[in-house]
Write a protein that binds this DNA or RNA. Structure first.
Ligand SMILES: [Mn+2]
Ligand SMILES: [Mn+2]
Ligand SMILES: [Zn+2]
Ligand SMILES: [Zn+2]
Lengths: 146, 146
DNA sequence: CTCAATAACGATACTCATTCTCATTCAGTA
DNA sequence: TACTGAATGAGAATGAGTATCGTTATTGAG
């Protein structure tokens, strides 16, 4: 997805939610587009510098989440991470380092993906659970933490 | 697994880690054994009552985690949950309610489990990642939150 | 273009889950 | 029983995340 398309889509979702696509919001969306996995507020603050103060960063991420532009990820100790929603990234999974906490994106083979989805539908139904998505994460030690 | 076996195993792991299996630690292990999914400190405190003060509960869970008796679960906003490790529960997955945050245990068919494991090994290897486990979670709305 | 009206921003105070500290109590051993 | 390190528990400290509120930027009517 090109940057222009990404911006247009984000713009449109924010508009549908009834808010503007401001400079700060654009900066956060673009920073997340550069990332190879979900990012913490601290990591984003590092990349963005003082142009987006931390209090604004938190508020921006909340707005982006509520408008469906980003999704939160809670897979690592004590820290919430954010990434662009699946309309932007495509469906994918994660490698989570249990040592340093970094999270990287990961694609899995289409065949497995389809079987996972089938099982998700079936099991969820059995339990009176209304499925909205699934996450498959591989936990272990990343290259740097071996 | 019987309560007696569970206690013996927990005992042994704590001993290997060099600490005692005290009354408070036993109470926490048994409370987790009763649960149908990972539990927050607040939920455990509710069940355990004042016999295990919150500051002790946190410390106890840290010790149990370090000795391999319990594992943390970070799948819901802002709260860490704990459950008995897989040697006690068997390998399983979770249903996570995106509305109320409750998490329930879930078994998946053996066939899928094996395929997931095969893919985990293969993909992790490709990425120079040393896999230690995986988690497959179904997100959606639970019966009470439909 | 000017001027309200409204949205967004940013510094700061606050909340609350979790961790730390330290004085006290407990358990194992001689 | 007395000694000693482990464990406990009350409360203080920490820090990620949220709420507040005065200021600034954007919008659109006139
Ligand atoms: Mn991702
Ligand atoms: Mn579980
Ligand atoms: Zn790592
Ligand atoms: Zn629910």
């Amino acid at each position: 997805m090109t940057t222009a398309t990404l911006e247009r889509e984000a713009q449109s979702r924010l508009a549908a939610y009834g808010v503007r696509f401001t400079r700060g919001r654009r900066a956060v969306v673009l920073a997340l587009a550069e990332a190879q996995g979900p990012r913490t507020v601290a990591e984003l603050a590092e990349v963005l510098g003082p142009s987006v103060p931390v209090s604004s960063l938190y508020r921006t991420l909340t707005v982006l989440e509520e408008s469906g532009v980003v999704v939160p990820h809670y897979g690592t100790r004590g820290l919430t991470r954010y990434e662009l929603a699946e309309w932007a990234t495509g469906h994918h999974h994660h490698l989570v380092c249990i040592e340093c906490g970094t999270v990287d994106d990961l694609e899995i083979p289409e065949g497995l993906e389809q079987r996972v989805e089938a099982v998700v539908e079936e099991l969820a139904d059995d339990q009176g659970f209304e499925p909205a998505g699934h996450s498959l994460e591989i936990e272990g030690r990343c290259r740097s933490c071996h």
